[in-house]
């Protein structure tokens, strides 16, 4: 097996920890894996941003605007460092679909731990791309991530085509109109899945739409906290 990022051969090194319980085959070599930055230390319990305070400034703002805050909490795994930015660019924008599998193991393990309290009584909903964008990219990265997880996944949402999120300013993002449409109502808890949490607006748009149509609770699980 070769490293999905640098294409060097991966040779597992056996030590006391993995001699009995062999580690699952890795898709990144040790060096590249080391460049990924896990979110570690105290973090905002609402949005996963690294913060000394229990709730970060951003989320305090959301708390003040409770009518627009539709998400119980978001959980993310990685920091958006430059290596990660490179990886995301290659995966998402340049169509290296398989590179996404590099996140499979972490995604699965963290999810199983953090969302165990839902006892499988929840539905995964990936944040959709607009039809045009999907045609352009070839795959929906959020859907790919959701499919790595051990709960049923349903594409309940569709998206109206608009300007790329990443090209907008913060205020422009927060004040956008809801770009989503619901195809089906749901009465179970929903975990929204996406690649990056930046301001949380997109997820909250999707969340309020779900909640307005009878969904009892909405959570978010994202790969990266931007």
């Amino acid at each position: 097996m070769n490293c999905l990022w640098c294409d060097r051969q991966i040779i597992p090194e056996i030590n006391w920890e993995n001699i009995f319980m062999l580690a699952k085959p890795k898709s990144l070599c040790g060096e590249c894996e080391g460049k990924l930055e896990y979110l570690q230390g105290s973090r905002c319990k609402k949005c996963s941003r690294l913060s000394e305070e229990a709730v970060c400034l951003d989320c305090k703002w959301w708390n003040e605007h409770a009518e627009r805050d539709s998400i119980a909490f978001n959980y993310s795994i990685f920091n958006y460092n430059s290596f990660m930015q490179d990886m995301i660019a290659k995966w998402k924008y340049r169509g290296d679909y398989v590179l996404g599998t590099a996140f499979k193991l972490d995604l699965f393990q963290v999810f199983s731990k953090r969302f165990a309290f839902l006892k499988n009584e929840a539905l995964l909903v990936p944040i959709p791309l607009s039809e045009e964008r999907l045609r352009e990219r070839g795959f929906n990265q959020a859907k790919m991530l959701a499919e790595f997880l051990p709960l049923p996944c349903e594409e309940l949402l569709t998206r109206i085509h608009g300007e790329k999120q990443s090209k907008k300013t913060r205020t422009a993002r927060i004040s956008t109109n809801n770009p989503f449409k619901l195809t089906k109502t749901v009465n179970k808890s929903v975990i929204l899945v996406d690649d990056i949490y930046t301001t949380g607006t997109t997820l909250r748009h999707a969340g309020s739409l779900l909640k307005a149509h009878g969904c009892p609770e909405v959570y978010a699980f994202t790969l990266i906290r931007g």
Binding site: E13, I14, N15, W16, E17, I19
Partner: peptide, 10 residues
């Protein structure tokens, strides 16, 4: 030798 190789990380 096996034990020592397993212990390299330690």
């Amino acid at each position: 030798t096996f034990g020592l190789i397993l212990s390299r990380k330690w």
